[in-house]
Design a protein around this nucleic acid. Sequence first.
DNA 1: TAAAGTTATCCGAATACCGGACATATTAAT
DNA 2: ATTAATATGTCCGGTATTCGGATAACTTTA
Lengths: 264, 264
Amino acid sequence: MSTPETSPQAAGSLNRATILLTTLARGSRKGSTLTELVKRSGLPRPTIHRVLDSLMELGWVEREPDSGRYNLGADLAALGYSAIARHPIARVAETTLSALAESLRQVVYLGVRSGLDMVCIGRYESPSQIQIGKGYVGLRGPFGMSLSCMAMFAHLPEAEVQDIINANMARYHRIEGFDEQGFHRTVADAMRNGYGTYDNIILDRSTSGLAVAILDPSGHPVAAIGTTYITGWLDDAGKQRCLEQLQLAASKLAQRLFMELPAS
Amino acid sequence: MSTPETSPQAAGSLNRATILLTTLARGSRKGSTLTELVKRSGLPRPTIHRVLDSLMELGWVEREPDSGRYNLGADLAALGYSAIARHPIARVAETTLSALAESLRQVVYLGVRSGLDMVCIGRYESPSQIQIGKGYVGLRGPFGMSLSCMAMFAHLPEAEVQDIINANMARYHRIEGFDEQGFHRTVADAMRNGYGTYDNIILDRSTSGLAVAILDPSGHPVAAIGTTYITGWLDDAGKQRCLEQLQLAASKLAQRLFMELPAS
DNA sequence: TAAAGTTATCCGAATACCGGACATATTAAT
DNA sequence: ATTAATATGTCCGGTATTCGGATAACTTTA
């Protein structure tokens, strides 16, 4: 009725495998137990067991010998290197964002959307001031729960934004300390401003942040750059400068990503 | 009869999907056409077509709108980031090998085995002397066609080495300028020395190289470090020093990878 | 305009996927 | 020890899905 429910076409076992791999990717880096997968994926247990066996045979899933936890496998990682080589956002961004982190003296994150998830594909910190943050490359969470998502929301059709939020609301609420009021306010702010910003909202109550989207030539967001700082460290002018630097970096990257290469 | 032929168990469509994805990963970064996939994978064309459709629906495969070439998709890359986060060899090696490249003033490669393939998962160059090499992160080729493979051969059971070589011989011969004599000599050298080395052999006739394996506590090779230089740039003493530095880096990495972490 | 090559679609037969039900560890509680 | 509770592993028959030969549509070359 309200939810689309339109994906009857894709191959059966492949679908199951994808759901499981995504579920594993959403889980902790230490891996997941079978029962955790049952709870989080919603698939019947025998099915999971069987599909995991197949995936293990392919090397896409591994099993910690002692703990028995399932985890994404080495062959999938190897395949990932090749897939990443064909989607070079993070590689292209490497120098620009490292320099940005250095200049801001703040940690800078790069993220992309994958279905209903946000995936962190880059983390850059100033060597002079190592700041310990919770984000790491490969981290996956519900799309909408980070400032980078807000920046991308601002450039997505409003209907799509609503669809994503509706589909993920249950997952948001599972996060400790989630404040739906503040969340909707942050989204509205982002849609109005064209970039993401918050102070003392969402999760961590002592941090503020800024994020901007990287747009393709048609205006569709393909990634987002975000940065976090202790609330109060930046006054309004400082915030403005920070925002401008982010925007500059984003447009520079967009240009480099979508620039036509001269015919060789 | 002679070949094992023992893999009847894994799920059908998953198997097909894996073969296709691997075939795509082996192909150029620009993607592959359907007919190329037919030739290289050996699967019937309608099957490929159907499975690719499913894979595209999942976001694991994409299609260049104008050229019609198939390629590994963005969602697979996103999944790859998570898988790589759980197999941190490249991350752990980052600083050590960058320093090594700087010290040697040569390009240093890091590679792992995936089935019958070698995958390049790291490339480190000295900023002071940028050297253009053919290897890039994500590059995938038949296992055995690089020095890093030789280094790993040296620590694999001889029977397994023979199996790999037999299985890949047809692929070797497809490479222009392949010299079977020299290849076997290089393998024998590696098995004897415990590390990989060549001068003017295999492919590029003006380069020499050195490579050593990274071993897990049981002695099994998990990755290899390799470096290339113009033949003649290093005399015997220089070669020896270079080898020692590689071996030092390899053992340092092994130690860091398999060191028990103190309970937190 | 024909011929060669590449891509897309049908569709019946055969297969291997599906998951409820059951059996077997493994851990926790009495 | 014994029971209870939880997690993991295995069977197996019905049926939905996959399989690929055959054919059609489309595109480039001669």
